[in-house]
Design a binder for these strands. Structure first.
Lengths: 356, 356
DNA sequence: GGGAATATCGTGCACGTGCACGACAAATTT
DNA sequence: AAATTTGTCGTGCACGTGCACGATATTCCC
């Protein structure tokens, strides 16, 4: 509190407690080899005088390095996870500033066993902290339990599982995103039934899409509960299959004009609309993938709801590094980023002039 | 880049350049007393080897302290600026971690001459950095010019003046806020003319409200350009006057059902509606003041658009401290916080469980 | 050319902490 | 009782940089 505290050094504490600075150090770091009497005395002095170690001297003297493990899917070109990689790389540029090493543990996005294998490899590396997206609910529960047991802090990105012991979350409120998407989608004269899309293999497990879906439905229930909502599942890299599904859907439900894709691949739907020459649909999607932006420009996707993923991830890694090395708590547990709305008109100006 | 860089010290550079570490230090800090030959050689080595000083050693050795000056209005109870104060206090708790002192320079919110006087006092204190809200456009231009001349970095909070040389901005996109407010206000069956409110003395100068107003009008122009928009000005602490204005307004325009207050004091309007027994109006406002929340609960204000001001300010001070002491650039120039929408239903859950 | 002024540079201590090492006494074993 | 182990503790160097101080080389002036 007082500025005098700033000047209080370990040597002062030692003098006041009648011991040497070595002993104080042992107490501060719970390193044992201290008699109960000395320990109590030192703690009393620390408490009373409000001693706090100088983090700079500490960092300088300590040759310990902290390993930050990032658990994320490997990214193909243009995919969402490539944006995440960029954020990590940006954080890596600061590695030198902290006594921190950043290592990425990749797994196959749609392969839960790969996820678990990677979890094990990650645990074996005995990291000091973990940054991860909570992909599969069960497997995530598994690894977070292990991490908690080992007292390894972990930070969520992309989405979060509430009521879990994560140190912090950096990203959007996926529920709010879904809610916002519904508001945008239905903000027009022609209401009517809604077609929603997801990705087949991910639909039940992926937290991001399910939270968006929850938020979407919440808005619908609150504002237009009688609305009919259809659900279809696509495949990330099977255009023929997707064409089949979408052909059938629009044949069966030609009256559906409002469309939303909860996954990051709204371009799959937009590109179908373009190829099939379907017009007059109102489509909303998420995330700033290059192909999504293209769809936006061409007018087949009306709105993209997103934040700057790269920045979210950067902040996540940064916060963990500062927590580990400087013992600095994140500003908040849930650090929600802005819910930005991109249209064909403003997309070009987004994420420009926004950086140093 | 390479981890080897991490190990490169000033002594290594000295050896490679064939000089002593004192000389390298003089070059690094532009402290003169170095021959052009040595200087060139040292810079070459630094460049080639990618030497970057160890910030921890630097902080430890330097007994220099940085003064951060905060230029904000003094706050009465319950006002917006009290939230700003809380953010500064929160940052102050970290003072010891950086070699930083935080000082607050108060001025009278509605008195431009007081603003300029305080600017002068602030400049005399020769701060290392400034956190400020760009209140009066001209006076802000004056002080930022002075700061730029003295090479003192400044961070904007509350709102920003674009194309200015501020180091960073932490807060909402006021334009987006206004835009969002229009979308919420008109998201209902009964459209029609709109009544907008501001604060009398601030209207022309205050950047926050004018940006919100701009955003609001942008939405109206894009989506319902034929809409009639009225504008009235209230006084922050003159309820009799406000009652007179509002009485007259609703008498003259009984058909106006949609209302928005661009200042933080939407409760002025809400409390009038309550007192006058006017119902059936749809009112939208900004900022999480206690009295605004009250209005929300009672149903006289429908939506509050806000972010967690306290956190925005905390981040602003923190970023400046890290820039000064660690030479760490802010993550972005414009750090927009989330645009949160509060209703009588979710207000109680906002800003809870959201912190460590 | 001798002294003084100036330009340039090297040396060494201080910053506060982490930690290895060894000192010492008490407790235990042989 | 001597030898060994165990439990406590102090000492001192290292971390990389900032900066004061003084040393040396160079230039200038008369």
């Amino acid at each position: 509190m007082d500025k005098v505290n700033k000047k209080l050094t370990i040597k002062d504490v030692a003098r006041l407690a009648g011991v040497s600075k070595g002993t104080v150090d042992r107490v501060v770091h719970n390193r044992g080899e201290v008699s109960e009497a000395s320990r109590a005395k030192v703690l009393e002095v620390i408490e009373q005088m409000g001693y706090r170690p100088n983090i700079y001297a500490s960092m300088l003297a300590s040759r310990r390095r902290y390993l930050i493990a990032c658990l994320i899917p490997s990214a193909q070109g243009g995919e969402f996870w490539e944006l995440v990689h960029k954020g990590i790389e940006r954080a890596r540029a600061n590695e030198g500033n902290y006594n921190v090493d950043i290592e990425i543990f990749h797994y196959e996005q749609f392969d839960e066993s790969s996820f678990r294998d990677t979890c094990r490899r990650l645990l074996e590396s005995a990291p000091a902290g973990v940054v991860m997206a909570p992909m599969y609910r069960d497997s995530t529960a598994y690894i977070t339990t292990e991490l908690t047991q080992r007292e390894i802090p972990y930070v969520f990105i992309d989405s979060r599982i509430e009521n879990m012991g994560y140190l912090a979350y950096f990203g959007m409120s996926m529920f709010q995103c879904g809610y916002q998407s519904a508001a945008l989608l239905t903000d027009c004269e022609r209401r009517g039934p809604v077609g929603t899309f997801g990705i087949e293999r991910a639909s039940r497990r992926n937290n991001t899409t399910s939270e968006r879906s929850r938020g979407f439905m919440a808005y619908i229930d609150e504002h237009m509960p009688e609305t009919k909502v259809y659900e279809e599942l696509l495949r990330p890299s099977d255009p023929a299959y997707n064409k089949m599904v979408l052909d059938a859907f629009f044949k069966a439900h030609p009256e559906v004009n409002l469309l939303v894709m909860f996954n990051s691949r709204v371009h799959l739907v937009a590109e179908y609309l373009e190829a099939a020459g379907v017009t007059g649909k109102r489509l909303v999607g998420f995330d700033m993938l290059p192909r999504n932006i293209d769809s936006l420009r061409k007018g087949f996707c009306k709105y993209l709801i997103t934040s700057i993923t790269e920045m979210d991830v950067y902040h996540a890694v940064q916060a963990l590094a500062e927590f580990l090395t400087l013992h600095k708590n994140p500003a908040a547990k849930d650090n929600f980023s802005s819910i930005d709305i991109l249209t064909r008109y403003n997309a070009d100006y987004y994420f420009k002039n926004n950086h140093i």
